[in-house]
Every structure is written in structure tokens, then in C-alpha cells.
């Protein structure tokens, strides 16, 4: 029984990681109906930025964290300006390919700049362990869970309660109509990329003690975050969290109870079955098209 609970808890912690990355997908999807395949790589880059500020320049952890988030928000805006804005309004797959190209590029360039070794950041959460009865919980995992919950709540409120959030939802629904209503769609898209890059950075820095920072971390985790986002219903913020946790738990259970090899495949099998049975996901909207 204890084994089960331990697996469950570590699955939830892992799931929150996927949820954090999926949150980035969902944000950009919610505002522009584009899936950003470079999301994982933004996370990787955020980790490297934080490493540069904290590990190399020797700044305080929190200042370095904040610095990385701000720098990456600016970088997200830059990437949007250079790569996405010129092709806004073209078919979805075109933009998806452009973000795949961006991811490729960032991955390789980061490998060239920071090398291919695993890097580590010393964080205030690296050492401690919380014991609850027989249960062992590392502080770094707890910090990921707490941060995910907090970010989800903040972003949910942002999208549903603020004017800017409403403008973002409107521009995803119908870009041209949003223009007519006086929404500065270009600036909205730019801001959402900045927010998404900032969320990715937060994920990257929090993950640093768990997965370390290397140039491929974004690809590996980014591919796992897709099932999370789809399961929750692309475009739903609570959905990203729930989907992420479900995928994390499924993966960790499959690793423990099923033969070797199932662990890596289980999320994708779940993904394919969700797409087959309920393509709109758990929290997704399903509206029939009127012709």
C-alpha cells in the first residue's frame, strides 16, 4: 500500500512538471490557436539563462530566477516578432512547422553555447526532505507542485477575469472580428508569447534540481506534455493541470507495475485513445460547425 501511495505521489509531482509545460502550450493555443512545438525548448533555454545568472554570475537564487523569467519573456516576444508574426493568418500547420524549426534551432544553439554536459543549479529546495509517516517527499518536488498550482490559479484568473484575458480569448475565437472590435491582436499575441515563455522558464528553473539542464531536456519533456495538454482538452488551463497529473500518475504506475518499456509508451497510448474516444479532452469545448 505504501508503495502505491509513494508511486502516486511521485506520479503527481512528475505530472505537475508536465502540467507546467502543458500550461505553456495551452496559453499560446488559447490566444492564437497555434501549438508551439518550441515550448519545451523555451523551458530549456530558461533553465540555461537561470544557470548563467545563478551558477556563473553568482547571483542570489531568487534574483537569478526573476532575471531569467524577465529575460525569457523578452525573448519570447522577440521570437514571436521574428518567427510567428509574419505568418500569422496562414494555415495552422505552417506556423506549427515554423515553431518546430525554432525549437530545432534553439536546441542546437544552446548546445553550442552551454555545451552538452548536464548542468545543475543549487536551489533552496535541493536538500530538504519532508516525511509524512512512511512517505518521503523531496522539497524540490513539493516546490514544483506548489508552483504549478499557484501558476494555474493565477493564469486561470487572468484569462477569465481580466480585460486582457478576455481579449486573448476573443482573438483566438476569430482573429478578424477581434480586430474589428478594436483589440490590438498583434500586441495580444506578443504578450501571450511573453507570458508563455515566462511560465516555461519557471518550469525550467524548478525542474533544474530534478532533471538537470541539458539541451535535449525540452524535447523529452515537451513531447510528454502533449498527451497532458490533449487529455485535459487543448485550451483549458485547469485541463492542462489535470491532464498533466493524470499522465504523470499513469506513467509512474506503468513504470512500477507493468513490464519494462511500458513506462515510456503509456502516455502516448493514453493520448491516442483519448483522441479516438473523446478528441475534445476532459475540459474541452465541443461545438458543431455550422456551414
Amino acid at each position: 500500500m505504501l508503495d502505491f501511495v509513494q508511486q502516486l505521489v511521485s506520479g503527481i509531482a512528475l505530472g505537475c512538471v508536465y502540467g507546467l509545460i502543458a500550461l505553456g502550450f495551452v496559453l499560446i493555443y488559447k490566444a492564437t490557436e497555434v501549438v508551439n512545438f518550441a515550448q519545451g525548448d523555451l523551458m530549456m533555454l530558461g533553465g540555461f539563462f537561470a544557470f548563467t545568472f545563478i551558477g556563473i554570475l553568482g547571483l542570489n537564487y531568487w534574483i537569478g530566477f526573476l532575471g531569467a523569467v524577465i529575460a525569457m519573456a523578452a525573448f519570447g516576444m522577440l521570437a514571436e516578432r521574428l518567427v510567428v508574426r509574419p505568418i500569422l493568418g496562414y494555415p495552422q500547420f505552417t506556423i506549427v512547422m515554423a515553431t518546430i524549426g525554432l525549437g530545432f534551432f534553439l536546441r542546437s544553439v544552446a548546445g553550442m553555447i552551454w555545451g552538452t554536459d548536464d548542468l545543475k543549479i543549487d536551489t533552496p529546495f535541493s536538500q530538504g526532505v519532508l516525511r509524512l509517516g512512511g512517505l518521503v517527499l523531496a522539497h524540490d518536488k513539493l516546490s514544483v507542485i506548489a508552483a504549478t498550482l499557484l501558476l494555474c490559479l493565477l493564469l486561470y484568473l487572468f484569462f477569465n477575469k481580466t480585460t486582457l484575458g478576455t481579449a486573448m480569448r476573443a482573438s483566438s475565437e476569430n482573429m478578424l472580428a477581434a480586430y474589428y472590435m478594436g483589440i490590438p491582436v498583434k500586441r495580444v499575441v506578443s504578450i501571450v508569447w511573453a507570458i508563455s515563455a515566462a511560465v516555461a522558464t519557471a518550469a525550467g528553473v524548478l525542474l533544474a534540481p530534478i532533471t538537470f539542464i541539458h539541451s535535449n531536456v525540452g524535447l523529452v519533456l515537451g513531447l510528454k506534455a502533449f498527451p497532458a495538454a490533449v487529455l485535459g482538452g487543448f485550451g483549458s488551463i485547469p485541463g492542462a493541470l489535470v491532464g498533466g497529473v493524470l499522465i504523470g500518475v499513469i506513467e509512474s504506475m506503468a513504470g512500477f507495475y507493468l513490464p519494462q518499456g511500458w513506462k515510456d509508451v503509456a502516455p502516448y497510448i493514453v493520448l491516442l485513445s483519448v483522441l479516438l474516444l473523446k478528441p475534445e479532452g476532459i475540459f474541452g469545448l465541443h461545438v458543431r460547425k455550422k456551414v
Binding site: 524549426g101 525554432l102 525549437g103 530545432f104 534551432f105 534553439l106 536546441r107 542546437s108 544553439v109 544552446a110 548546445g111 553550442m112 552538452t116 539541451s215
Partner: peptide
Amino acid sequence: NGLKGAIYGF
């Protein structure tokens, strides 16, 4: 190492 990937992405 990553030059090929960077060229592809570009």
C-alpha cells in the same frame, strides 16, 4: 556538434 541541427532549424 549542433551545427547541423541549427542549420536545419534555420
